[in-house]
Amino acid sequence: MTQFIDIAALDDIPRQGARVVKTPAGCIAIFRTGDDQIFALDDRCPHKGGPLSEGIVHGAQVTCPLHAWVFDLNTGLAQGADEGEVRTYAVRLEAGRVLLDAGFLARRSAA
């Protein structure tokens, strides 16, 4: 089930930066690119658990702050020679507000 909920104003998130949303299943990083695209990914690098929200955002990619793995924000896939994937979440921008698909919470509690 898709269930978009309002989590923040766009301007709460710095351009070329990220903020995190706390959930029972761990933190989700909400990224904002230089041209105001919004992406949501697990805030956890599959390599050693680094907080991706603290990485440098360039184009639609982020570089993990711990060991410099690079992930595509669209797909969550590691770039280059590294292999790995970060879970992505649907996110929407409406009238300056950021909406996150929180359907995963419902699924989780139903399980």
């Binding site: 909920i5 989590i7 923040a8 709460d12 995190v20 706390k22 919470l105």
Partner: peptide, 11 residues
Amino acid sequence: APVADLTLRAA
């Protein structure tokens, strides 16, 4: 701090 906290919502 986190920009939003959904832990309470799930509870």
